[in-house]
Write a protein that binds this DNA or RNA. Structure first.
Lengths: 386, 386
DNA sequence: GGACTTACTTTTGGCGCGAAACAATTGCTG
DNA sequence: CAGCAATTGTTTCGCGCCAAAAGTAAGTCC
């Protein structure tokens, strides 16, 4: 498979900072860039010239819309040519592979999913290779592949431990590179989502930023100084040990009153079933709680209070500028957002800065997109760290 | 008062980074500096030369001790001339002013305390002015003054709110500068201690570092990327809103089960008195607990569990490389350190990196020293931020 | 149309850095 | 003890990157 890999031009540190700033913060004039990067106007002419010549940036028409018709020579904003390169992102679940093609800006331009009928590493890599082959036909200039997996990933290449795939130390990046000839980055799915939001989403340009995901499990990501902090217990069930309420419910999966017991979808379903004898989907439970049915109300309320307590604790200790709440379980906010807010308030000083809490519903393609962003980062930052 | 203020030589960014590295990390050879700062050997000759000529650095004899007698030309370590400048640090309490004179390395070379008989801002400033006048006689080349106050301080100059002094918006820095002619930095005492430990203490060279103080109140300091994070509720009783154990004791001062109720010295004394009818000092209570007296054991044990829970939560969310436990209440660790450790373990993932917990007993002179370090930082970093 | 304002470009000079050759100072080896 | 290897530090040189300043471009305002 010989994809059209025109090599990314080698960038000087100055050029790279310009490229990233434009990539992340949209069209910007040279003057604006000079202000943001603390450089002189002259330097910007120098730095942008080769970037424009190489086709990475273009001058875009002012569009007249945002122009407030102020006097003086109008600025000519620069923007990245978003579709000059394409990226592939995969999210592997137990029974499906979700794939997306994105632009350099991480906008999704195509989706392609496939059921996963085997967990054999080589066969999974085969599936990914085939999906890549199909996608590359419509999207040449593919620059890299990112893969998100639930589980513990080492060195952005090896799946050290994945409970649902039953993998240990599988060199997935290598396997897929062999089949595609493209650079591959493998990362824990939550970590990938965090990095993605740091560049292109809720955490854009923030210094301290937290991502909390609730769904089948609990996910936590910490970004400090624009970089994600890696930690040992990452995606190894740490939520079972976050004791939020010592008097909370006891479930088969987590310790009494743990974040997992209180907040994850399987455990909320377990609690409701144990109390009412009827098994229902998460959405049905939320609807029942909204309708006022006693047991679901109690369980959902307890979950909401737990979430608020967690958010408050994180705010108290980390003091992030923003907390992003993501995952399949965020529907909780719609039904019991008020309770969450109350719990946050109860665990926080009245004078403390209000918690900026953003909610984002995310489906599997968002997870795949997060993985694609990792590939973008690796390319733009030059393979080094990210 | 005309102190011998030879001006600190203006430093280029490169020179400043060398000066700080040597100041903070002790004697270092040029080669070692080159390695740490990522510069070439040639650059280090260039950068160190003016620093040596200005008298800020000196070549020190190898001392032969650490020399492992390896072959090659022996290195000539550079060190700061610690007593080339002196600094003054004050800690103001309700009824005393504690003062220290330190070297550039923040080593205390003199102490001088005085009772405080008034809380009138001008008179307090007079006291500080007089103490400065006395100290400057024996310690010329005084370069700056740092003042630590319990309470909320704005812009490192104005005491916005101090409960025990009953001050509001007192421009203390200005008042003391008028009387001494020296640059003055005012800061919250916990914040000063945190900055001090970041440069010269437990947090030296760390990227993520937390200071937790227990004593009359609760103090919290967060250092990320080598810089302290400021927050609005700083020293405004936030500990009353950290609910550690919803079933914890209720005290007059804090909300039920709050860190303040469980951990501060006055509240521990209150609890023991309420249960036994006898008022005892903190030390007596700790001793009684160590001796096995039931009620003190219960209260101390609960406090230790609360402390462990807090430490675990901080570790889980912030993932600091180290947590420093300071203040007058750290005696708790001697009596119930085991219980604290157990509580940490109970609230943390088994695979998580072990918490590096350091305990430091600190008296009032340590707080004053912390304030002096702020003056050092301002001088070395060039009055800008710190 | 001229004055003014803002955006960008070109030119120039300097600073800071690394590369590389060189000097200094020791241990090791025969 | 002479010569060699190893390591630190110095000097010289040239390049890259940047800011400052002067010049050009392109619009608004009166």
């Amino acid at each position: 498979m010989t994809a059209g890999i025109a090599s990314w031009p080698p960038l000087s540190p100055g050029e790279r900072s310009v490229a990233i700033e434009v990539l992340v913060h949209g069209p910007l004039s040279r003057t604006e860039l000079a202000r943001r990067l603390g450089l002189s106007a002259g330097s910007l002419t120098r730095l942008t010239k080769p970037l424009i010549e190489s086709g990475l940036l273009v001058e875009v028409a002012e569009a007249g819309v945002s122009a407030e018709a102020r006097q003086g020579r109008p600025s000519t904003p620069l923007d990245v040519v978003a579709d000059s390169w394409s990226f592939l992102g995969f999210k592997i679940t137990e029974d499906m592979v979700y794939g997306v093609v994105t632009t350099l800006r991480s906008d999704i331009v195509a989706r392609h999913d496939r059921p996963l009928t085997t967990h054999d590493p080589a066969e999974v890599a085969d599936v990914l290779g085939e999906m890549t082959a199909e996608l590359v036909r419509d999207h040449p200039r593919l620059a890299g592949i990112g893969i998100g997996v639930g589980g513990f990933v080492q060195d952005r290449a090896v799946v050290g431990e994945s409970p649902f795939l039953l993998w240990r130390d599988v060199p997935l990046a290598e396997l897929v590179e062999e089949r595609t000839g493209l650079p591959v980055v493998v990362e824990n799915d939550v970590a990938a989502l965090v990095e993605s939001e740091t560049w292109f989403g809720a955490g854009r340009g923030l210094d301290r930023f937290v991502v909390l995901t609730i769904g089948a499990g609990i996910g936590y990501g910490l970004v400090l100084g624009g970089k994600r902090v890696a930690y040992a217990e990452e995606d190894r069930g740490f939520g079972r040990h976050w004791i939020v309420d010592p008097n909370g419910p006891l479930t088969p999966d987590g310790r009494r009153g743990s974040a997992v017991s209180l907040l994850t979808i399987p455990n909320i379903r377990y609690q409701v079933q144990a109390a009412t004898g009827r098994d229902r989907t998460y959405e049905e439970i939320l609807a029942a709680a909204a309708a006022g049915e006693p047991m679901p109300v109690r369980v959902v309320d307890e979950a909401a209070r737990a979430l608020g307590t967690l958010v408050a604790q994180i705010s108290n200790f980390v003091m992030p500028q923003k907390i992003l709440l993501a995952g399949e379980g965020v529907g909780l906010m719609d039904v019991a957002g008020k309770t969450v807010e109350d719990a946050v308030r109860d665990n926080r000083h009245p004078l403390a800065a209000p918690v900026e809490l953003e909610t984002k519903v995310s489906d599997f393609h968002d997870w795949a997109r997060g993985a694609a962003v990792l590939a973008i980062k690796v390319l733009v930052l030059g393979s080094a760290e990210a």
